[in-house]
Design a binder for these strands. Structure first.
Lengths: 237, 237
DNA sequence: AAGTGGTCTAGACCACGTT
DNA sequence: ACGTGGTCTAGACCACTTT
Protein backbone atom coordinates (compact mmCIF):
# COMPACT_ATOMS: atom_id res chain seq x y z
CA UNK A 1 0.00 0.00 0.00
CA UNK A 2 3.05 2.22 0.37
CA UNK A 3 6.69 1.96 -0.53
CA UNK A 4 8.21 3.99 2.26
CA UNK A 5 7.92 3.36 5.95
CA UNK A 6 6.36 6.67 6.99
CA UNK A 7 3.78 6.27 4.23
CA UNK A 8 2.95 2.78 5.50
CA UNK A 9 2.57 4.02 9.05
CA UNK A 10 0.37 6.84 7.83
CA UNK A 11 -1.86 4.64 5.71
CA UNK A 12 -2.17 2.01 8.47
CA UNK A 13 -3.52 4.66 10.83
CA UNK A 14 -5.62 6.35 8.16
CA UNK A 15 -7.29 3.03 7.36
CA UNK A 16 -8.27 2.47 10.97
CA UNK A 17 -9.72 5.97 11.23
CA UNK A 18 -11.71 5.85 8.00
CA UNK A 19 -13.01 2.37 8.68
CA UNK A 20 -14.28 3.59 12.02
CA UNK A 21 -12.13 1.15 14.03
CA UNK A 22 -10.65 4.16 15.78
CA UNK A 23 -13.54 6.56 16.42
CA UNK A 24 -13.30 10.32 16.89
CA UNK A 25 -11.62 11.05 20.22
CA UNK A 26 -9.66 7.78 20.29
CA UNK A 27 -6.12 8.26 21.55
CA UNK A 28 -3.75 6.74 19.01
CA UNK A 29 -0.49 5.16 20.23
CA UNK A 30 2.25 7.50 21.43
CA UNK A 31 5.20 8.14 19.14
CA UNK A 32 7.47 5.94 21.27
CA UNK A 33 4.95 3.09 21.10
CA UNK A 34 4.83 3.30 17.32
CA UNK A 35 8.65 3.42 17.27
CA UNK A 36 8.72 0.03 18.97
CA UNK A 37 5.90 -1.36 16.88
CA UNK A 38 7.49 -0.45 13.55
CA UNK A 39 11.09 -0.68 14.86
CA UNK A 40 12.04 2.72 13.50
CA UNK A 41 13.25 6.10 14.73
CA UNK A 42 11.01 8.75 16.18
CA UNK A 43 11.53 11.08 13.19
CA UNK A 44 9.90 8.52 10.94
CA UNK A 45 6.87 8.11 13.18
CA UNK A 46 6.74 11.88 13.60
CA UNK A 47 6.65 12.43 9.85
CA UNK A 48 3.67 10.10 9.51
CA UNK A 49 1.76 11.70 12.38
CA UNK A 50 2.57 15.28 11.34
CA UNK A 51 1.21 14.50 7.91
CA UNK A 52 -2.01 13.10 9.39
CA UNK A 53 -2.34 16.21 11.56
CA UNK A 54 -1.85 18.50 8.57
CA UNK A 55 -4.56 16.60 6.74
CA UNK A 56 -6.86 17.18 9.71
CA UNK A 57 -7.36 13.50 10.50
CA UNK A 58 -5.80 13.68 13.95
CA UNK A 59 -5.20 16.33 16.60
CA UNK A 60 -1.98 16.43 18.55
CA UNK A 61 -1.72 17.79 22.08
CA UNK A 62 1.50 18.09 24.02
CA UNK A 63 1.67 15.94 27.11
CA UNK A 64 -1.72 14.40 26.25
CA UNK A 65 -1.11 12.50 23.03
CA UNK A 66 -2.60 12.33 19.54
CA UNK A 67 -6.32 11.85 19.00
CA UNK A 68 -8.60 11.01 16.10
CA UNK A 69 -10.14 14.37 15.15
CA UNK A 70 -13.84 14.95 15.45
CA UNK A 71 -15.45 15.98 12.19
CA UNK A 72 -15.45 19.75 12.63
CA UNK A 73 -18.73 21.23 11.54
CA UNK A 74 -17.00 24.59 11.30
CA UNK A 75 -14.43 23.51 8.80
CA UNK A 76 -16.81 21.36 6.81
CA UNK A 77 -19.20 24.29 6.56
CA UNK A 78 -16.69 26.00 4.34
CA UNK A 79 -17.56 23.57 1.63
CA UNK A 80 -20.60 21.57 2.69
CA UNK A 81 -23.07 24.19 3.86
CA UNK A 82 -25.04 23.55 7.05
CA UNK A 83 -28.35 25.19 6.29
CA UNK A 84 -29.61 25.78 9.87
CA UNK A 85 -26.27 27.34 10.83
CA UNK A 86 -26.33 29.61 7.80
CA UNK A 87 -29.84 30.82 8.45
CA UNK A 88 -29.37 31.45 12.15
CA UNK A 89 -25.99 33.09 11.44
CA UNK A 90 -27.72 35.80 9.46
CA UNK A 91 -30.24 36.34 12.25
CA UNK A 92 -33.28 34.58 10.83
CA UNK A 93 -35.39 31.99 12.60
CA UNK A 94 -34.81 28.50 11.21
CA UNK A 95 -37.55 25.96 10.58
CA UNK A 96 -37.48 22.34 9.46
CA UNK A 97 -40.21 20.09 8.05
CA UNK A 98 -39.82 16.42 7.18
CA UNK A 99 -42.14 15.84 4.21
CA UNK A 100 -41.55 12.16 3.53
CA UNK A 101 -39.23 9.34 4.55
CA UNK A 102 -39.05 5.88 3.05
CA UNK A 103 -36.77 2.99 3.90
CA UNK A 104 -36.24 0.39 1.17
CA UNK A 105 -33.83 -1.95 -0.59
CA UNK A 106 -32.03 0.13 -3.22
CA UNK A 107 -33.27 0.00 -6.79
CA UNK A 108 -30.84 0.23 -9.69
CA UNK A 109 -31.81 3.88 -10.03
CA UNK A 110 -30.91 4.51 -6.40
CA UNK A 111 -27.49 2.94 -6.92
CA UNK A 112 -26.90 5.03 -10.03
CA UNK A 113 -27.73 8.16 -8.10
CA UNK A 114 -25.37 7.15 -5.32
CA UNK A 115 -22.69 6.14 -7.86
CA UNK A 116 -22.48 2.96 -5.80
CA UNK A 117 -19.59 0.84 -7.07
CA UNK A 118 -20.36 -2.53 -5.47
CA UNK A 119 -23.19 -4.60 -6.91
CA UNK A 120 -24.74 -5.46 -3.56
CA UNK A 121 -28.33 -4.45 -2.87
CA UNK A 122 -27.82 -1.98 -0.06
CA UNK A 123 -30.63 -0.61 2.10
CA UNK A 124 -31.33 3.08 1.56
CA UNK A 125 -33.36 5.86 3.11
CA UNK A 126 -35.15 8.17 0.70
CA UNK A 127 -36.38 11.38 2.24
CA UNK A 128 -37.64 14.81 1.36
CA UNK A 129 -37.71 17.83 3.61
CA UNK A 130 -38.13 21.59 3.59
CA UNK A 131 -36.00 24.28 5.18
CA UNK A 132 -37.61 27.55 6.30
CA UNK A 133 -36.17 30.98 7.08
CA UNK A 134 -38.42 33.42 8.98
CA UNK A 135 -41.22 30.94 8.41
CA UNK A 136 -40.84 31.23 4.61
CA UNK A 137 -39.70 28.32 2.40
CA UNK A 138 -35.93 28.53 1.85
CA UNK A 139 -34.98 25.24 0.21
CA UNK A 140 -36.29 21.81 -0.74
CA UNK A 141 -34.02 18.89 0.10
CA UNK A 142 -34.28 15.50 -1.59
CA UNK A 143 -31.90 12.98 -0.10
CA UNK A 144 -30.82 9.38 -0.48
CA UNK A 145 -28.74 7.87 2.33
CA UNK A 146 -26.73 4.65 2.40
CA UNK A 147 -28.02 2.70 5.41
CA UNK A 148 -24.98 0.44 5.26
CA UNK A 149 -23.10 3.43 6.67
CA UNK A 150 -25.70 5.56 8.42
CA UNK A 151 -26.94 3.68 11.48
CA UNK A 152 -30.66 2.91 11.37
CA UNK A 153 -31.36 4.48 14.73
CA UNK A 154 -30.42 7.84 13.24
CA UNK A 155 -33.62 7.75 11.22
CA UNK A 156 -35.75 8.82 14.16
CA UNK A 157 -33.50 11.87 14.58
CA UNK A 158 -34.52 13.13 11.16
CA UNK A 159 -38.05 13.85 12.39
CA UNK A 160 -36.66 16.93 14.10
CA UNK A 161 -33.05 17.34 12.87
CA UNK A 162 -32.13 18.05 9.24
CA UNK A 163 -30.24 15.01 7.91
CA UNK A 164 -27.43 17.17 6.52
CA UNK A 165 -26.69 18.62 9.93
CA UNK A 166 -26.80 15.22 11.57
CA UNK A 167 -24.42 13.76 8.99
CA UNK A 168 -21.95 16.64 9.29
CA UNK A 169 -21.59 15.96 13.00
CA UNK A 170 -21.59 12.19 12.98
CA UNK A 171 -20.16 10.78 9.76
CA UNK A 172 -16.64 11.65 8.61
CA UNK A 173 -16.25 11.92 4.85
CA UNK A 174 -13.25 11.77 2.59
CA UNK A 175 -14.53 13.16 -0.67
CA UNK A 176 -17.45 15.09 -2.06
CA UNK A 177 -18.71 16.35 -5.39
CA UNK A 178 -20.97 19.32 -5.91
CA UNK A 179 -22.92 19.71 -9.13
CA UNK A 180 -24.55 23.08 -9.54
CA UNK A 181 -27.01 24.31 -12.13
CA UNK A 182 -30.06 26.50 -12.67
CA UNK A 183 -33.60 25.40 -13.54
CA UNK A 184 -37.07 26.81 -13.54
CA UNK A 185 -38.93 25.66 -10.45
CA UNK A 186 -41.66 23.70 -12.20
CA UNK A 187 -45.16 23.13 -10.75
CA UNK A 188 -44.35 20.74 -7.88
CA UNK A 189 -41.38 22.58 -6.40
CA UNK A 190 -43.01 25.96 -7.07
CA UNK A 191 -45.83 24.93 -4.78
CA UNK A 192 -43.48 23.73 -2.03
CA UNK A 193 -41.33 26.85 -2.30
CA UNK A 194 -44.23 29.28 -2.71
CA UNK A 195 -42.90 30.81 -5.94
CA UNK A 196 -44.01 31.06 -9.58
CA UNK A 197 -43.43 27.94 -11.72
CA UNK A 198 -41.06 29.85 -14.06
CA UNK A 199 -38.96 31.11 -11.13
CA UNK A 200 -35.21 30.59 -11.63
CA UNK A 201 -33.87 28.23 -8.96
CA UNK A 202 -30.35 27.24 -7.97
CA UNK A 203 -29.86 23.48 -7.67
CA UNK A 204 -26.97 21.91 -5.76
CA UNK A 205 -26.53 18.18 -6.11
CA UNK A 206 -23.94 16.62 -3.87
CA UNK A 207 -22.50 13.15 -3.45
CA UNK A 208 -20.38 12.37 -0.42
CA UNK A 209 -18.03 9.44 0.01
CA UNK A 210 -16.23 7.78 2.90
CA UNK A 211 -13.41 5.85 1.31
CA UNK A 212 -14.95 3.68 -1.40
CA UNK A 213 -18.53 3.93 -0.11
CA UNK A 214 -21.02 6.61 -1.04
CA UNK A 215 -22.55 8.08 2.08
CA UNK A 216 -25.34 10.16 0.61
CA UNK A 217 -26.77 11.91 -2.42
CA UNK A 218 -28.65 15.16 -1.93
CA UNK A 219 -30.38 17.63 -4.23
CA UNK A 220 -31.05 21.07 -2.78
CA UNK A 221 -33.30 23.49 -4.66
CA UNK A 222 -33.22 27.18 -3.67
CA UNK A 223 -35.19 30.08 -5.12
CA UNK A 224 -32.53 32.02 -7.06
CA UNK A 225 -32.85 35.25 -5.14
CA UNK A 226 -32.67 33.64 -1.69
CA UNK A 227 -29.33 31.96 -1.91
CA UNK A 228 -25.86 32.49 -3.29
CA UNK A 229 -23.12 29.92 -3.18
CA UNK A 230 -19.79 31.47 -2.27
CA UNK A 231 -16.50 29.63 -2.54
CA UNK A 232 -13.15 31.11 -1.66
CA UNK A 233 -10.12 29.17 -2.80
CA UNK A 234 -6.46 29.19 -3.73
CA UNK A 235 -4.62 27.61 -6.65
CA UNK A 236 -3.29 24.03 -6.87
CA UNK A 237 -3.89 22.34 -3.49
CA UNK B 1 7.08 35.99 10.18
CA UNK B 2 7.65 32.54 11.65
CA UNK B 3 8.83 31.19 14.96
CA UNK B 4 10.55 28.03 13.77
CA UNK B 5 13.42 27.78 11.35
CA UNK B 6 11.81 25.57 8.74
CA UNK B 7 8.77 27.85 8.70
CA UNK B 8 11.02 30.84 8.15
CA UNK B 9 12.87 29.13 5.31
CA UNK B 10 9.55 28.16 3.76
CA UNK B 11 8.03 31.62 4.03
CA UNK B 12 11.20 33.29 2.73
CA UNK B 13 11.00 31.20 -0.41
CA UNK B 14 7.22 31.50 -0.69
CA UNK B 15 7.49 35.28 -0.57
CA UNK B 16 9.98 35.37 -3.42
CA UNK B 17 7.76 33.13 -5.54
CA UNK B 18 4.53 35.02 -4.95
CA UNK B 19 6.18 38.41 -5.44
CA UNK B 20 7.46 37.22 -8.78
CA UNK B 21 11.14 37.65 -7.83
CA UNK B 22 11.59 33.97 -8.61
CA UNK B 23 9.56 33.29 -11.76
CA UNK B 24 8.14 29.95 -12.84
CA UNK B 25 10.98 27.64 -13.87
CA UNK B 26 13.57 29.36 -11.67
CA UNK B 27 15.87 26.88 -9.98
CA UNK B 28 15.86 27.55 -6.28
CA UNK B 29 19.05 26.96 -4.28
CA UNK B 30 20.05 23.36 -3.62
CA UNK B 31 19.46 21.93 -0.18
CA UNK B 32 23.16 22.10 0.69
CA UNK B 33 23.25 25.79 -0.33
CA UNK B 34 20.31 26.58 1.93
CA UNK B 35 22.00 24.59 4.72
CA UNK B 36 24.94 26.97 4.55
CA UNK B 37 22.80 30.05 4.15
CA UNK B 38 20.65 29.30 7.19
CA UNK B 39 23.38 27.39 9.04
CA UNK B 40 21.19 24.40 9.76
CA UNK B 41 21.00 20.70 9.01
CA UNK B 42 19.68 19.23 5.80
CA UNK B 43 16.60 17.78 7.51
CA UNK B 44 15.45 21.26 8.37
CA UNK B 45 15.86 22.56 4.83
CA UNK B 46 14.23 19.39 3.53
CA UNK B 47 11.18 19.90 5.71
CA UNK B 48 10.69 23.40 4.32
CA UNK B 49 11.11 22.31 0.71
CA UNK B 50 8.94 19.21 1.07
CA UNK B 51 6.20 21.38 2.45
CA UNK B 52 6.46 23.76 -0.51
CA UNK B 53 6.38 20.82 -2.91
CA UNK B 54 3.27 19.40 -1.22
CA UNK B 55 1.61 22.79 -1.59
CA UNK B 56 2.43 22.74 -5.30
CA UNK B 57 4.60 25.85 -5.24
CA UNK B 58 7.75 24.07 -6.33
CA UNK B 59 8.66 20.92 -8.23
CA UNK B 60 11.53 18.76 -7.13
CA UNK B 61 13.56 16.61 -9.50
CA UNK B 62 16.37 14.31 -8.45
CA UNK B 63 19.76 15.25 -9.75
CA UNK B 64 18.32 18.42 -11.32
CA UNK B 65 17.17 20.49 -8.35
CA UNK B 66 14.01 22.23 -7.18
CA UNK B 67 12.11 24.61 -9.43
CA UNK B 68 9.35 27.17 -9.06
CA UNK B 69 6.25 25.45 -10.46
CA UNK B 70 4.59 26.85 -13.57
CA UNK B 71 0.96 27.92 -13.15
CA UNK B 72 -0.66 24.76 -14.46
CA UNK B 73 -3.65 25.60 -16.59
CA UNK B 74 -4.76 22.06 -16.02
CA UNK B 75 -4.86 22.33 -12.28
CA UNK B 76 -6.36 25.80 -12.31
CA UNK B 77 -9.10 24.56 -14.59
CA UNK B 78 -10.36 22.47 -11.71
CA UNK B 79 -11.52 25.61 -10.03
CA UNK B 80 -11.35 28.43 -12.56
CA UNK B 81 -12.95 27.02 -15.67
CA UNK B 82 -11.37 27.77 -19.03
CA UNK B 83 -14.38 28.00 -21.31
CA UNK B 84 -12.70 27.27 -24.68
CA UNK B 85 -10.97 24.22 -23.21
CA UNK B 86 -14.22 22.92 -21.76
CA UNK B 87 -16.11 23.31 -25.00
CA UNK B 88 -13.46 21.75 -27.21
CA UNK B 89 -12.98 18.98 -24.62
CA UNK B 90 -16.53 17.83 -25.19
CA UNK B 91 -16.03 17.89 -28.94
CA UNK B 92 -17.86 21.08 -29.86
CA UNK B 93 -16.51 23.90 -32.02
CA UNK B 94 -15.66 26.95 -29.92
CA UNK B 95 -16.39 30.52 -30.97
CA UNK B 96 -15.54 33.88 -29.42
CA UNK B 97 -16.95 37.35 -30.02
CA UNK B 98 -15.74 40.55 -28.38
CA UNK B 99 -18.83 42.72 -27.99
CA UNK B 100 -17.37 45.81 -26.33
CA UNK B 101 -14.15 46.98 -24.73
CA UNK B 102 -13.59 50.22 -22.85
CA UNK B 103 -10.48 51.52 -21.14
CA UNK B 104 -11.02 54.12 -18.41
CA UNK B 105 -9.99 55.45 -15.02
CA UNK B 106 -11.90 53.42 -12.44
CA UNK B 107 -15.08 54.87 -10.98
CA UNK B 108 -16.03 54.21 -7.37
CA UNK B 109 -18.44 51.55 -8.63
CA UNK B 110 -15.60 49.79 -10.48
CA UNK B 111 -13.51 49.75 -7.34
CA UNK B 112 -16.41 48.34 -5.32
CA UNK B 113 -16.83 45.57 -7.83
CA UNK B 114 -13.14 44.77 -7.74
CA UNK B 115 -13.14 45.01 -3.93
CA UNK B 116 -10.09 47.21 -4.44
CA UNK B 117 -8.56 48.02 -1.05
CA UNK B 118 -6.27 50.94 -1.93
CA UNK B 119 -7.86 54.31 -2.59
CA UNK B 120 -5.84 55.03 -5.72
CA UNK B 121 -7.68 55.60 -8.99
CA UNK B 122 -6.48 52.64 -10.98
CA UNK B 123 -6.98 52.27 -14.71
CA UNK B 124 -9.40 49.52 -15.67
CA UNK B 125 -10.57 47.67 -18.76
CA UNK B 126 -14.30 46.99 -18.98
CA UNK B 127 -15.26 44.45 -21.57
CA UNK B 128 -18.11 42.22 -22.64
CA UNK B 129 -17.87 39.14 -24.81
CA UNK B 130 -19.80 36.09 -25.92
CA UNK B 131 -18.74 32.44 -25.97
CA UNK B 132 -20.24 30.11 -28.57
CA UNK B 133 -20.46 26.31 -28.76
CA UNK B 134 -21.37 24.80 -32.17
CA UNK B 135 -22.11 28.33 -33.27
CA UNK B 136 -24.83 28.71 -30.59
CA UNK B 137 -24.49 31.20 -27.70
CA UNK B 138 -23.04 29.45 -24.65
CA UNK B 139 -22.25 32.22 -22.18
CA UNK B 140 -22.07 35.99 -21.78
CA UNK B 141 -18.97 37.32 -20.07
CA UNK B 142 -18.82 40.75 -18.42
CA UNK B 143 -15.36 41.52 -17.12
CA UNK B 144 -13.45 44.25 -15.32
CA UNK B 145 -9.66 44.02 -15.32
CA UNK B 146 -7.11 45.87 -13.22
CA UNK B 147 -4.71 47.49 -15.70
CA UNK B 148 -2.21 48.11 -12.91
CA UNK B 149 -1.57 44.37 -13.10
CA UNK B 150 -2.62 43.33 -16.57
CA UNK B 151 -0.20 44.83 -19.10
CA UNK B 152 -1.87 47.20 -21.57
CA UNK B 153 -0.48 45.41 -24.62
CA UNK B 154 -2.60 42.40 -23.64
CA UNK B 155 -5.68 44.39 -24.65
CA UNK B 156 -5.13 43.77 -28.34
CA UNK B 157 -5.03 40.03 -27.62
CA UNK B 158 -8.62 40.14 -26.40
CA UNK B 159 -9.87 40.83 -29.90
CA UNK B 160 -9.32 37.17 -30.68
CA UNK B 161 -8.50 35.46 -27.34
CA UNK B 162 -10.97 35.22 -24.46
CA UNK B 163 -9.58 37.27 -21.57
CA UNK B 164 -10.12 34.45 -19.09
CA UNK B 165 -7.90 32.12 -21.07
CA UNK B 166 -5.23 34.76 -21.49
CA UNK B 167 -5.23 35.50 -17.76
CA UNK B 168 -5.03 31.83 -16.77
CA UNK B 169 -1.85 31.41 -18.76
CA UNK B 170 -0.17 34.71 -17.96
CA UNK B 171 -1.12 36.00 -14.53
CA UNK B 172 -0.53 33.88 -11.42
CA UNK B 173 -3.17 34.32 -8.73
CA UNK B 174 -3.17 33.61 -5.05
CA UNK B 175 -6.83 33.72 -4.14
CA UNK B 176 -10.22 33.67 -5.78
CA UNK B 177 -13.86 33.87 -4.80
CA UNK B 178 -16.75 32.41 -6.73
CA UNK B 179 -20.26 33.66 -6.14
CA UNK B 180 -22.93 31.53 -7.77
CA UNK B 181 -26.63 32.12 -8.12
CA UNK B 182 -29.59 31.70 -10.45
CA UNK B 183 -31.58 34.42 -12.24
CA UNK B 184 -34.03 34.74 -15.06
CA UNK B 185 -32.22 35.91 -18.19
CA UNK B 186 -34.06 39.24 -18.59
CA UNK B 187 -34.57 40.97 -21.95
CA UNK B 188 -31.00 42.07 -22.74
CA UNK B 189 -29.20 38.81 -21.95
CA UNK B 190 -32.05 36.77 -23.41
CA UNK B 191 -31.40 38.44 -26.74
CA UNK B 192 -27.64 37.83 -26.58
CA UNK B 193 -28.12 34.21 -25.50
CA UNK B 194 -31.01 33.51 -27.84
CA UNK B 195 -33.35 32.28 -25.11
CA UNK B 196 -36.68 33.32 -23.60
CA UNK B 197 -36.52 36.22 -21.10
CA UNK B 198 -37.84 34.01 -18.27
CA UNK B 199 -35.18 31.37 -18.91
CA UNK B 200 -33.34 30.23 -15.75
CA UNK B 201 -29.64 31.11 -16.01
CA UNK B 202 -26.66 30.17 -13.89
CA UNK B 203 -24.50 33.15 -12.94
CA UNK B 204 -20.91 32.81 -11.75
CA UNK B 205 -19.27 35.95 -10.41
CA UNK B 206 -15.58 35.63 -9.66
CA UNK B 207 -12.99 37.89 -8.13
CA UNK B 208 -9.33 36.97 -8.39
CA UNK B 209 -6.47 38.35 -6.33
CA UNK B 210 -2.69 38.32 -6.54
CA UNK B 211 -1.53 39.08 -3.05
CA UNK B 212 -3.30 42.25 -1.95
CA UNK B 213 -4.32 43.37 -5.46
CA UNK B 214 -7.50 42.37 -7.24
CA UNK B 215 -6.69 41.12 -10.70
CA UNK B 216 -10.16 40.90 -12.20
CA UNK B 217 -13.89 40.67 -11.65
CA UNK B 218 -15.97 38.61 -14.04
CA UNK B 219 -19.65 37.74 -14.32
CA UNK B 220 -20.50 34.74 -16.49
CA UNK B 221 -24.13 34.05 -17.43
CA UNK B 222 -25.02 30.60 -18.78
CA UNK B 223 -28.41 29.27 -19.89
CA UNK B 224 -29.30 26.84 -17.09
CA UNK B 225 -29.51 23.75 -19.25
CA UNK B 226 -26.18 24.32 -21.03
CA UNK B 227 -23.85 24.32 -18.11
CA UNK B 228 -23.25 22.61 -14.79
CA UNK B 229 -20.59 23.59 -12.33
CA UNK B 230 -18.88 20.57 -10.82
CA UNK B 231 -16.56 20.74 -7.85
CA UNK B 232 -14.83 17.78 -6.27
CA UNK B 233 -13.23 18.31 -2.92
CA UNK B 234 -12.04 16.83 0.36
CA UNK B 235 -12.53 17.96 3.96
CA UNK B 236 -10.42 20.43 5.96
CA UNK B 237 -7.37 21.33 3.84
C1' DA C 1 30.04 9.04 -13.04
C1' DA C 2 28.34 12.40 -10.22
C1' DG C 3 25.20 14.89 -7.65
C1' DT C 4 20.54 15.52 -6.52
C1' DG C 5 16.56 14.67 -3.57
C1' DG C 6 14.17 10.75 -0.57
C1' DT C 7 14.49 8.48 3.32
C1' DC C 8 16.03 7.09 7.74
C1' DT C 9 18.78 6.93 12.28
C1' DA C 10 19.90 7.78 17.14
C1' DG C 11 20.43 10.86 19.54
C1' DA C 12 19.32 15.97 21.75
C1' DC C 13 16.97 20.10 23.92
C1' DC C 14 12.87 22.64 24.62
C1' DA C 15 7.91 24.37 25.15
C1' DC C 16 3.95 23.26 26.92
C1' DG C 17 -0.06 21.31 29.04
C1' DT C 18 -1.66 17.92 32.31
C1' DT C 19 -1.18 16.49 36.75
C1' DA D 1 7.09 17.52 37.99
C1' DC D 2 6.62 14.90 34.26
C1' DG D 3 6.00 13.20 29.71
C1' DT D 4 4.25 14.55 25.46
C1' DG D 5 4.96 16.44 20.93
C1' DG D 6 7.98 20.13 18.21
C1' DT D 7 12.11 20.90 16.51
C1' DC D 8 16.73 20.18 15.21
C1' DT D 9 21.40 17.83 14.37
C1' DA D 10 25.06 15.36 11.89
C1' DG D 11 25.53 11.96 10.00
C1' DA D 12 24.14 7.72 6.50
C1' DC D 13 22.59 4.93 2.38
C1' DC D 14 19.91 4.71 -1.70
C1' DA D 15 17.29 5.70 -6.14
C1' DC D 16 17.13 8.27 -9.77
C1' DT D 17 18.34 11.34 -13.44
C1' DT D 18 21.20 14.07 -15.97
C1' DT D 19 25.66 14.53 -17.94
Amino acid sequence: MADTLHQRIRSDIETRILSGTWEPGYRIPFEHELMEQYRCSRMTVNKALSSLAEAGLIERRRRAGSFVARPLAQSAVLQIPDIPAEITARGDAYGYELLSSTRRKSTQEDRDRLRATGNGVLPVLDLCCRHLARGEPFAIEERLMNLAIVPEDAITAFKTTPPGTWLLHHVPWTEAENRIYAVQAGPAKAKLLGVAPDKACLVVERRTWRGADTVTFVRLTYPGDLYQLVAQFTPTR
